[in-house]
Structures are given as structure tokens and as C-alpha cells.
């Protein structure tokens, strides 16, 4: 019912806008309607109706958290192209970030995992040559952390993946990158990962409220 109301309200707003644009005649009546509509949008927009509208069809039973952020570019030892791996070649996020499904941290793969493919694939590319150098030196590339939360926040990848992927009926594990994108953005379109979500407490809380997450402080802070 609310959706219908909003829909008609939105149409009224459109009509009101087009009216004022086409003819300069604007009655006090239409102004009042427009004001009412704006108020309705402000009130209902904050109550999650709009969040429901931007639901991701690939992730059932979930309301993606809202919020944007423009993080600093992090200079990595090798400019790892996420888009080639996750988008072009459709490698599952959890193939490399293998700890995500069973521990607090998602983890960075050991260099051995990179070399599993790259001892034969694209060995002539400059980035792979750099990787091979590290491999031959027996040193891992000193990757830098992009998504970091304060030490008093105990975020668990495992529990979130269980809620949104493994225990989520109708969710396909192939589409896990859509769930990762809730907090990490469209990493599969990026080269080096870039922080695009605020990852602050308000961001977490809004999502917990929309998705019936726990409200206990000690779930995350201890």
C-alpha cells in the first residue's frame, strides 16, 4: 500500500514538475501537493522503502546497505587487476580469499596460489614478471590493507557469508561477489581495490537494522 502511495505521489511530483516547466501557471494547490509529496518522500525514504527498491535480484532475502565513500588510492606492490580475474575470467572471490567462509578475515592468498596459474599463464606480462621475482626471492608481495576497521571492531566474514550466502535460500554461490559488493563495492570492476563504502558504525547499523542483524554491542565490540 505504501509503495502504491509513493508511486502515485512520485507521479504527482512528475506531473507537478512538468506543469511548472511547461506553463508558468502554478496554483497554490499544486504547490501544496508538491510540498506534501516532498515531505512524504523524506519521511518514507528514510524508513527503508527505497532501500527495498534497490534490492539486488541476485541476492535474495537481503537489503544491501547504503552509503558511499571515496577512499584514498592504495599503492600496492603489484597492481593486481581484480577485473581480469573476477569479471573477465569469472573466478569466484572465495577461490583466492579462501578464509572468508571459515574465519574472521578473508585473507590474502599465498603467492603459491598465484603461481599455481601464473607459472604457465601470461608469464610475459610485466606484472607477472614482478610476481615471479617475489616468488623466486621466497618473499610474499607486501600487500597493503585497503579495507581496515578499528581494532575494537571484531567483524567476522564467516558469519556474514553464512547469513547471506550459505544459509540463504535461493542464493547461488557463484554470485558471491554480489554479497562481497555490499561492503567492498564492485571490486570486480576495479584494478586495485579501492574503498568505496564508509564501513563506519552507522553503515553497519543501518544494514543490521534492515536485515535483522544482532543489536547487541558485544557482538562486534569486545
Amino acid at each position: 500500500m505504501l509503495a502504491t502511495h509513493l508511486y502515485s505521489a512520485g507521479r504527482a511530483l512528475d506531473r507537478g514538475a512538468s506543469c511548472s516547466a511547461s506553463s508558468l501557471l502554478s496554483s497554490t494547490m499544486s504547490r501544496a501537493v508538491a510540498l506534501l509529496v516532498v515531505c512524504a518522500l523524506l519521511v518514507f525514504g528514510s524508513s527503508g522503502v527505497f532501500a527495498a527498491s534497490n534490492k539486488n535480484p541476485l541476492v535474495p532475502n537481503a537489503v544491501p546497505p547504503e552509503g558511499t565513500y571515496d577512499g584514498e588510492d592504495v599503492k600496492q606492490p603489484i597492481e593486481f587487476p581484480h577485473y581480469i580475474h573476477a569479471d573477465v575470467n569469472k573466478i569466484n572471490c572465495m577461490y583466492c580469499h579462501t578464509y572468508a567462509r571459515r574465519s574472521k578475515v578473508a585473507g590474502i592468498p599465498p603467492t603459491g596460489k598465484c603461481m599455481g596459474c601464473h607459472s604457465v599463464i601470461a608469464t610475459d606480462k610485466p606484472r607477472i614478471k614482478k610476481l615471479t621475482e617475489y616468488w623466486e626471492k621466497h618473499e610474499p608481495p607486501p600487500w597493503k590493507k585497503v579495507h581496515d576497521v578499528p581494532d575494537f571492531v571484531h567483524f567476522t566474514h564467516e558469519k556474514h557469508l553464512r547469513r547471506f550466502v550459505f544459509d540463504n535460500k535461493g542464493m547461488k554461490v557463484e554470485n558471491v561477489s554480489e554479497v562481497c559488493a555490499f561492503c567492498h563495492g564492485e571490486v570486480k570492476k576495479m584494478t586495485v581495490a579501492h574503498k568505496v563504502k564508509p564501513l563506519n558504525m552507522g553503515f553497519c547499523r543501518r544494514c543490521h537494522e534492515a536485515n535483522n542483524g544482532p543489536h547487541d554491542c558485544w557482538k562486534c565490540h569486545k
Binding site: 578499528p150 575494537f152 547487541d216 554491542c217 558485544w218 565490540h221
Partner: peptide, 15 residues
């Protein structure tokens, strides 16, 4: 400081 659903008296350091 508040009571958790675990029946514990919790202290939230960052608060």
C-alpha cells in the same frame, strides 16, 4: 555498560 542477552554485564570500551 548494559546487560546482554547472554545474561552478562557488558562493558563497551569504545563507548
Amino acid at each position: 555498560t548494559y546487560h546482554t542477552p547472554d545474561g552478562l554485564n557488558a562493558q563497551v570500551y569504545n563507548r
